[in-house]
Deep mutational scan, measured.
Amino acid sequence: LVRYRTISKIPQITLNFVDLKGDPFLASPTSDREIIAPKIKERTHNVTEKVTQVLSLGADVLPEYKLQAPRIHRWTILHYSPFKAVWDWLILLLVIYTAVFTPYSAAFLLKETEEGPPATECGYACQPLAVVDLIVDIMFIVDILINFRTTYVNANEEVVSHPGRIAVHYFKGWFLIDMVAAIPFDLLIFGSGSEELIGLLKTARLLRLVRVARKLDRYSEYGAAVLFLLMCTFALIAHWLACIWYAIGNMEQPHMDSRIGWLHNLGDQIGKPYNSSGLGGPSIKDKYVTALYFTFSSLTSVGFGNVSPNTNSEKIFSICVMLIGSLMYASIFGNVSAIIQRLYSGTARYHTQMLRVREFIRFHQIPNPLRQRLEEYFQHAWSYTNGIDMNAVLKGFPECLQADICLHLNRSLLQHCKPFRGATKGCLRALAMKFKTTHAPPGDTLVHAGDLLTALYFISRGSIEILRGDVVVAILGKNDIFGEPLNLYARPGKSNGDVRALTYCDLHKIHR
């Protein structure tokens, strides 16, 4: 019993810090008490220290592992850092350059016999395009090294910054494609005289377009951006097909006994025919423009016929181009109408809503002055909100995010209106959640004399007048207030005048 009563005193000691020596009952000389009392004092002292730490809000209350900052290894790049964003855009520009100039170089340097010394005699450094290609190869190699040090988000939505895990993730992902696209074939085969082989191998750079397509997928929600990307894709495919079309004609031209190829026909049409040795002929500019003209006309199913396939190889390629053109029509131009419709969806919704308003007016036989006010209010409210119901949009977000959005939407009023000066951010967040926005066209009466005042109004834009009878008592403008002081009276009061809008007004109100 003594032991039980001794232990039962522990909660009292913990909360009230009572010393055991003052209790005459606990001072009985028993061996059990002498053993338990020192333990009680020690526990009391420890609990006292913990309570003191909690009340003082000291940093040592938290466990040590929670006080440590997340460790980022040296030379690790955050995937959302500004440097990584700028670097990704730079790589994107280099990939676009590669997609345009690599097929052009591979096709127009394929057994090209233009006048001038061969590239091997001039030297590697004197070729501007080769120098640019070398810079692109170096940048792609540097990009691989950067990807080995860039964080990523795993399946659990955690940012991984450990170098080993980053390397394994990159090896399992895009490393092989990036490595093949970054191989400097110019340096590996330079001086061997195989410019045709170098041009063909350099087309491996186009593998990076797969990554670019995935990154550009984030802009699919913007109709104008999608339309622009589709047109660029169409032009890029036409450019690639033009390079292939020229390569076919250029390879067949020296081996044909009869002059029936499209390059021969082009030379005869523009007065620059090929001679018996295969030299001469149109310039590279004429060849490229004509090839691009043929691919565009074939892809769009126009086909004027002034550039036509004559050999079997050219006919087979033309059939493939027609098939590609039909697929592009289905996948690209078939979506253009939907994209344009999405661009004008706001206008369509406006006309639909206006039609419903006019049908309501016609069905209920609203008189002319009231009908005009109804239409003007709808037009003004639509121009202010673009038909978007803010309350319906915010309803799907958590309250903390709703408060931040409301604070942002009402920031101008909260910053410049005098009653809100000096208020804490928590108070402003709470008030912003209570605001209701209303609009009024010129001549609209917001409050009639004798109406119950259940709200306090803040003028965000425009001006109003307060009338008693036919006498203008006051004219209020931006950041002015009218209405009933909230919670100042037990019952809502009545208006002693009319409140009429002089201009288009936007008002925020808080109800009782």
Rank of each mutant, 00 (worst) to 15 (best):
F101D: 01
L90R: 01
F397H: 01
I270Y: 03
F420T: 01
K66A: 07
Y104C: 01
H351S: 05
Q365I: 01
A440D: 01
L374Q: 01
I141L: 07
L236N: 01
S313I: 14
F83P: 05
V95A: 01
V95F: 01
R429P: 01
C126H: 01
T98A: 01
E359V: 01
S313G: 04
I77Y: 01
A242I: 01
I141V: 07
G443V: 02
W240D: 01
V336F: 08
G303K: 01
V168Q: 10
E112Q: 05
W245G: 01
G249N: 03
F296E: 01
T98S: 03
V160I: 14
E252Y: 04
R165N: 05
L93E: 01
V131M: 05
L197H: 04
K172S: 04
D133Y: 01
P254C: 15
S345V: 11
L78T: 05
L230N: 14
W87R: 01
Q341A: 14
G325M: 01
K84V: 03
S283Q: 01
G123M: 01
Y288R: 01
G249I: 01
Y274D: 03
C406A: 14
R342K: 04
I189T: 13
P273A: 01
T120L: 04
S301M: 05
P103F: 01
V393K: 03
L431H: 01
L230A: 05
V447W: 04
V336T: 03
T347C: 04
L110T: 15
H162S: 13
L216F: 09
E121M: 06
K172E: 04
G303Y: 01
A423F: 04
G426E: 08
E314M: 01
V132H: 01
L94Q: 15
E359D: 04
V180L: 13
H264G: 01
F363W: 08
L145K: 01
L227K: 01
D268H: 04
I138E: 01
L374M: 07
I77W: 01
I237V: 11
A432W: 01
M139Q: 02
P367D: 10
E64H: 09
P82S: 07
A224K: 01
G164T: 13
H169K: 09
F378C: 13
L266A: 01
Y65V: 08
A167D: 01
F185A: 04
H79W: 01
Q365G: 08
F304D: 01
G278A: 03
W87Y: 02
L327H: 01
I96F: 01
E64L: 14
A381Q: 11
A449W: 01
F435V: 07
L241D: 01
V307L: 01
L67M: 14
F175W: 04
R208V: 09
T76H: 03
F171A: 09
D404P: 02
H351T: 05
L409S: 03
I72K: 15
F296C: 04
I91T: 06
